[in-house]
Computed example of a mutant assay.
Amino acid sequence: SHEGYNYWFDNDDLSSSLYSGPREPGSGVLDQVPAILTVISRSHDVASSELAERIYAGLTALDDYLVVVFAHNGMPIAANFDIGDDW
Rank of each mutant, 00 (worst) to 15 (best):
Y65D: 05
L59P: 01
G28V: 10
L66K: 13
I36E: 03
Y56P: 00
V69F: 00
G74V: 04
A47I: 08
I77S: 12
L30K: 14
A47N: 10
R54W: 02
L66T: 07
S15H: 10
R54P: 01
S41W: 00
W8L: 10
Y19L: 10
L14F: 03
N11I: 05
V68M: 13
G21P: 01
I77F: 02
S27Y: 11
E24M: 13
Y7I: 04
V29N: 07
Y56F: 11
F9V: 10
A78G: 06
D64V: 12
P34L: 04
F70R: 05
S41V: 01
G58I: 00
T60V: 12
N11S: 11
D12Q: 15
L37A: 09
L62S: 15
V68R: 06
N80T: 07
G58Q: 13
P76I: 04
A71S: 13
S43D: 07
I55R: 00
D63S: 15
N6A: 14
G26A: 04
S20P: 03
I77G: 04
L51C: 01
Y5I: 11
N73I: 03
H72M: 06
A47P: 05
D10M: 09
V33K: 07
R23N: 14
R42K: 15
P34H: 08
A79I: 02
V33P: 00
Q32N: 11
L62K: 15
V33W: 08
E53M: 07
A78Q: 10
G21C: 08
H72N: 11
F70M: 10
I77M: 08
V39S: 02
G28S: 12
I55W: 00
L18F: 03
L14R: 01
A71Q: 03
L51D: 01
V33G: 03
G26Q: 02
D45Y: 13
D64C: 13
Y65M: 12
T60G: 09
T38G: 05
F70V: 07
S43Q: 06
S20T: 13
S48R: 03
V29R: 03
E24S: 14
T38E: 11
S41I: 00
V46K: 06
S48N: 05
D10N: 15
V46N: 03
A78I: 06
Q32E: 09
A79H: 03
L18V: 07
H72L: 11
P34T: 04
S20G: 09
S16W: 01
F9A: 12
R42S: 08
S48G: 07
D31R: 08
W8Q: 15
M75A: 14
L14C: 02
D13G: 06
I36A: 09
Y65C: 09
R42C: 02
L37T: 04
H44C: 10
L66W: 04
W8E: 13
A57V: 05
P22Q: 12
Y7C: 07
L30H: 12
F70A: 06
